[in-house]
């Protein structure tokens, strides 16, 4: 009678201990599995959130571009037309008072002011909407942009494009983003870097567009600029624009050799 319960106790105890170990192992593996699932879900959620944020950013940039276009059109069509009409009217008036010496200098001054205003309106309108970019592509737009800046600031530009035709075209959003980034970088160089040389390189290799912007001015601390909410607005704009087109941005800056900005855009066509 005693043997039977002894066997039962020993066998039962062994089974129970084995079951305990199984439960412990099960908890470890199950928890790990659950955690992996949760991490994956969180990742998916994060990706979705990033996508949404990018879409929002894209929309806000689109709205910005549309607003620029509207302002440019209004300036060109409305203000430009009014100024042209004013110029015509003034020409008529100046014909009538021709020969009256006391008005001659005022007439000439006013005429040149009206001409200046007309050309300024045209220039602002052109700056707001890069027509060359839309019509002839990135390389022509960069060429036009740097010659204009060179005239205004006397900064020396060197522009090299490797493996690209003059009329090479990319996705419209890529072209626009890169052109706006170039404008922002040039603006930063003029305003803060005190540089006298800017080197721009554009290359296309392995389905990637590589854009390099190097100046010889005084550099800056990238991290500090990005973390300061009052500073780095331009840099943040650059980042936003590049996020939308899935581009990689790398900025190397130091006081001796200036700043180098490298942008890589995959599948730009």
């Amino acid at each position: 009678m005693n043997e039977s319960p002894t066997f039962f106790i020993i066998a039962g105890t062994v089974i129970l201990i084995l079951m305990s170990f199984s439960v412990i192992l099960f908890v470890v593996f199950y928890q790990r599995k659950q955690l992996t699932i949760e991490i994956e879900q969180q990742k998916e959620l994060q990706e979705l959130e990033n996508k949404m944020q990018r879409k929002l950013l894209e929309n806000s940039l689109d709205v910005q571009e549309l607003e620029r276009r509207r302002i440019a059109k209004d300036l060109h069509d409305e203000v430009g037309a009014i100024l042209s009409a004013a110029k015509m009217g003034f020409n008529e008036l100046s014909k009538k008072i021709k020969g009256v010496q006391e008005y001659e200098s005022s007439v000439s001054n006013t005429k040149s002011l009206i001409d200046e205003s007309i050309s300024l309106v045209r220039s602002i309108s052109k700056d707001l909407v890069p027509r060359t970019l839309e019509g002839f592509g990135l390389i022509s737009a960069i060429d036009e942009f740097i010659s204009k800046i060179h005239k205004a600031t006397h900064i020396q530009f060197e522009f090299n494009n490797k493996g690209l035709n003059e009329n090479e075209r990319f996705k419209p959003n890529v072209e626009l983003a890169l052109f706006r980034v170039l404008q922002e970088l040039t603006n930063n160089t003029i305003k803060h870097a005190e540089a006298n040389e800017i080197k721009i390189e554009l290359a296309y290799a392995d389905d990637s567009l590589i854009f390099n912007f190097i100046d010889n001015g005084k550099g800056f601390d990238f991290e500090q600029k990005m973390n300061d909410p009052k500073l780095g607005l331009g840099l943040r704009n650059i980042q936003s624009r590049l996020t939308v087109i899935d581009a990689d941005l790398k900025i190397i800056s130091n006081p001796v050799s200036g700043t180098q900005t490298k942008i890589i855009i995959k599948n730009p066509k």
């Binding site: 319960p5 039962f8 106790i9 105890t13 201990i17 305990s20 908890v27």
Partner: peptide
């Protein structure tokens, strides 16, 4: 988790021994 695991092994391993106290 480790503390609970230790207690689980202790309790499950000794439950039958105490249940059949008269035989053990």
């Amino acid at each position: 988790f480790w503390i609970s695991s230790g207690i689980l092994i202790f309790s499950s391993g000794s439950i039958l021994i105490f249940l059949f106290f008269t035989f053990t």
